[in-house]
Design a binder for these strands. Structure first.
Length: 265
DNA sequence: GCGTCGTCCTGCGCGC
DNA sequence: TGCGCGCAGGACGACG
């Protein structure tokens, strides 16, 4: 599933290819799902950037083409069997492949995210200087939700999905069901450190490619961070830190993985 | 206002 | 072998 490291990998590959290119058309056959895209035709792409799990093409005339890959979406340089849209540029075509149709593709005025409330409320970028332990503490203190649910909301910090939330919480020795506003500052600091270290390492390895809904890079190559997953998808296996069996349970409707010894409540 | 839950969608794995 | 069920996931609207 595309989370921050996967989306960042896509951005790094595509950004140099699309910068300064003119966008000729966004072609698709699902007008109910992908709306209002005609206005992008003919505009030059200033740059491709990432915000959390969103890819944003900054266009001329203060417009943004915003893409969310959902859970199975990818941007490819070749057509796939589940291509839902083609972004046609002067020199190349980028294919939006999305088997499960959870992805989004829309054109908005720059910075106007009324149609994307999660993007509008999004917390700081975890790999930026704005993301400090103190900032994280402030945002966690404001909610009574379970820690993992809070992280998945994108409000304390941008870009974490199910995989990297589980991995970061394991790294910080925190239980996902802990109420977010009960953390001591040393625990927030451990979480802050774990989030940054997990995401940095995952970006280096090109993200995680799993069997189900497999994410791949634009050139079709996989990521390799799944080899280093400590808990995600490893129920029944030994915790890499203490050897206790990893357990899986459902929290907020999401499959969740913990080491019952390292992550006591 | 806040938190939780159901829904969207489709491929795949498993059980019968 | 083949069928059908259930699960996976991010975002968001509905509901309590």
């Amino acid at each position: 599933m595309p989370e921050l490291p996967e989306v960042e990998t896509v951005r790094r590959m595509l950004a140099p290819l699309v910068a300064e290119q003119r966008l000729l058309a966004v072609v698709h056959d699902d007008p109910l799902r992908y709306r209002n895209l005609d206005g992008a035709a003919g505009l030059r792409i200033k740059r491709l950037r990432r915000r959390g799990k969103y890819l944003i093409f900054d266009l001329e005339r203060d417009l943004e083409l915003v893409i969310h890959l959902g859970m199975s979406g990818s941007l490819r340089l070749d057509e796939g069997s589940h291509t839902r849209a083609r972004i046609e540029l002067e020199g190349l075509t980028v294919f939006f492949n999305d088997p499960r149709r959870f992805g989004k593709l829309l054109l908005v005025p720059a910075g106007d995210y009324a149609a994307l409330p999660t993007l509008a409320r999004m917390g700081p970028e975890p790999l930026s200087r704005n993301f400090t332990a103190r900032a994280l503490a402030g945002r966690l203190a404001g909610t009574r939700r379970p820690l993992k649910a809070a992280l998945l909301s994108q409000e304390p910090v941008a870009g974490l999905g199910n995989i990297y939330a589980d991995e970061s919480l394991w790294g910080a020795r925190l239980h996902p069901a802990r109420r977010a506003d009960t953390l001591a500052f040393f625990e927030v600091r451990a979480l802050h450190r774990a989030i940054r270290s997990v995401l940095r390492r995952a970006v280096v390895l090109g993200g995680s490619t799993l069997g189900d809904g497999a994410y791949t890079r634009p050139d079709g190559e996989p990521g390799y961070f799944q080899i280093e997953h400590s808990v995600y998808g490893r129920a029944g296996e030994a915790c890499p830190r203490c050897g206790r069996k990893i357990e899986r349970f459902v929290l907020g409707g999401r499959s969740t993985h913990v080491c019952p010894r390292c992550q006591s409540r």
